[in-house]
């Protein structure tokens, strides 16, 4: 849970989100049990209001730069401005693994 907790803490500090969910999806991939390699982040925050998706994702990527460089293999990212957020049911599911990390 170490990396998952670190991601959560960093995002809480950086964005004070009205909604945040950090899910470890590593079990869906070709990595050892208990890995913390694949995550899905759903985050709702004021900072995303009026911005296109690319800059929103960049804001999150910057906050998680160390983790992305060293720990995380994949990050599914769903950023929402509070006025666009309609609940968890609108967040798309992440794809299943096709074995890509075998090549690493």
């Amino acid at each position: 849970m170490e990396i998952q907790n670190r991601i959560t803490e960093k995002l809480l500090n950086a964005f004070s989100p009205s909604h945040l969910q950090v899910v470890n999806e590593s079990h869906m991939h070709n990595v050892p049990a208990g890995s913390e390699s694949h995550f899905k982040v759903t985050i709702v925050a004021e900072q995303f209001s009026g911005k296109r998706l690319l800059p929103c994702h960049r804001l999150v990527n910057e906050v998680l730069a160390d983790e992305l460089a060293n720990d995380i293999h994949a990050l599914a990212l769903h950023t929402y401005a509070p006025e666009k957020w309609q609940g968890e049911s609108t967040v798309p599911a992440s794809p299943n693994c096709l074995g890509g990390s075998k090549h690493d």
Binding site: L53, L54, H57, R58, N61, A65, L68, A69, A74, L75, A76, L77, H78, P92, P95
Partner: peptide, 24 residues
């Protein structure tokens, strides 16, 4: 300045990764 793949580039500019592509 984008840490992951895939990356879609259109007309010389980064559009985004998988989540952005799908949402668009």
């Amino acid at each position: 300045n984008w840490p992951t793949f895939p990356q879609l580039w259109v007309d010389g500019e980064l559009v985004g990764g998988c989540d952005i592509i799908l949402e668009m």
